[in-house]
Amino acid sequence: MNELSYKNRPLLRKGNEIFYGEPSTGYICYIKIQSEKTVKSENKEKKDEVTDITVPETLEVQLVECADGSIKFTEQKVTRTGFSNALTTADIWLGQKLR
């Protein structure tokens, strides 16, 4: 299985929703893409070609508790600009919870 992971935690995207973290640890992060933007990207093979790609712009990160088989959405929620910032926030939150 070619599963995606970030900092040794699984990461899965489905549409505008991203799930990050391992449920068995008790917490995961639910990231929702609220808006996207189009950016110009150079083609790696043909550097003259510039293509438009859509990337997430604003993302809502929410901590979800998955303890004892039940799922509970916590009040810990924040909006970040850019996918990298959102993932970093989620990673920090999960790190804090699993410390």
Binding site: N2, E3, P10, L12, P23, I28, C66, I71
Partner: peptide, 25 residues
């Protein structure tokens, strides 16, 4: 609906895609 999605996510990350058995995780 979100609960179901998270349950599916759990299933995906703990399942081996090729065989359907559990994976290393």
């Amino acid at each position: 609906i979100l609960n179901v999605k998270i349950e599916n996510y759990e299933k995906i990350i703990y399942t081996d895609e090729m065989t359907g058995l559990y994976n290393e995780r």
